[in-house]
Write a protein that binds this DNA or RNA. Sequence first.
DNA 1: CATATTGTTCAAAATATTTTGAAACATTCG
DNA 2: CGAATGTTTCAAAATATTTTGAACAATATG
Lengths: 189, 189
Amino acid sequence: MTQALWPSEVIVSDVIGRLIEFWGFKRNLGRIWAVLYLSPEALSAEDLRTLLKLSSGAVSMSLGELLRWGIVRRVWIQGERRDFYVAEVQLWKMISRVFSEREKAEIDAAIEAFEEALAALDRQKQTLKKSDGPRALERIELQKQRIGQLLDLAKLGKKLLDALLSTAKVDAEPLVRFLLGRSQQQQVR
Amino acid sequence: MTQALWPSEVIVSDVIGRLIEFWGFKRNLGRIWAVLYLSPEALSAEDLRTLLKLSSGAVSMSLGELLRWGIVRRVWIQGERRDFYVAEVQLWKMISRVFSEREKAEIDAAIEAFEEALAALDRQKQTLKKSDGPRALERIELQKQRIGQLLDLAKLGKKLLDALLSTAKVDAEPLVRFLLGRSQQQQVR
DNA sequence: CATATTGTTCAAAATATTTTGAAACATTCG
DNA sequence: CGAATGTTTCAAAATATTTTGAACAATATG
């Protein structure tokens, strides 16, 4: 379709690529999404291949991943043989979808691990008594306390995430107003 | 000092390592921090080397990085020749420090790039007129609108970050209460 | 059904990142 | 000072990740 990207498209796809990489995705996922996001029409895999100079395999795999994340949609075009793709344009929707899958899994794993560590400490406490110095008990207590802190933080993170996501479902406005208000006042009411 | 890590320490350093990697740092930074965080006494580079089975170079570089991030502190111990290290234990302080450096830089770069892209679009509009079809103008307008969205989102992100950081300085409670409240009610007042 | 077109897969190649370990450097102590 | 101990640096090696491209699969078309 198109021959080359416009300067605006190059800039945006590059920066989105870097951002997305920063967030732990592959750079090309961001680049492809960005090009679709800025395109007035749906594009084919072939279009993307030429525009971004990627191999067919890379395009296919990247699109698969983007589809799986619900960040890009396939569209059918009358009488066209190949598939076409469009970007999800509701940014907030996109972000919250990714968060609710990816960050949630990560945080849940962490919580589980911290709990497991606390259990291990309890077992250690049982096995104690005899040979170990008096320091050992202190040490167990310290670790319990500190791992407890980590666990609390992780649980807080989980709650924040949930809150953010349920906020997002309805409307992000109130959260925004709350935070912006605070940042200007710089003071807790 | 110590011979081997306790199970609790293994679990925690592993999970922190993974978490930290998820956040774009090297795994060993997380592992080292975690071991220090769970240790009752300050540890030397040598201790860390044996506990975590790392090369001396890796320990040195990792500690350097952790010090630079203000996530670990060097301490001097009476009559000891070598340096000892302790973890920053105020988790929130740690997190907000990292955010204020790293995420901020990333977001500022993005904002700048989006603005540059808008400028490029304006230039493109000038160079238009003659040969380009009637679609070209539409396209420019679409891109302006979409890049505008991205820019707004990035600016919002920046404000959220600032708000979070200034919140953190004083006390994270109000933000937490706000979000938790909302998540339970599931309703904007 | 044979052919043409497009999509997918995956082993190998290319890249990028991380780790190692030995040498250079620094500091303390006798 | 010179030996001993500890730290940093950095090129090379080891790992991990990403990309390629050719083979294969699927599907439409005549």
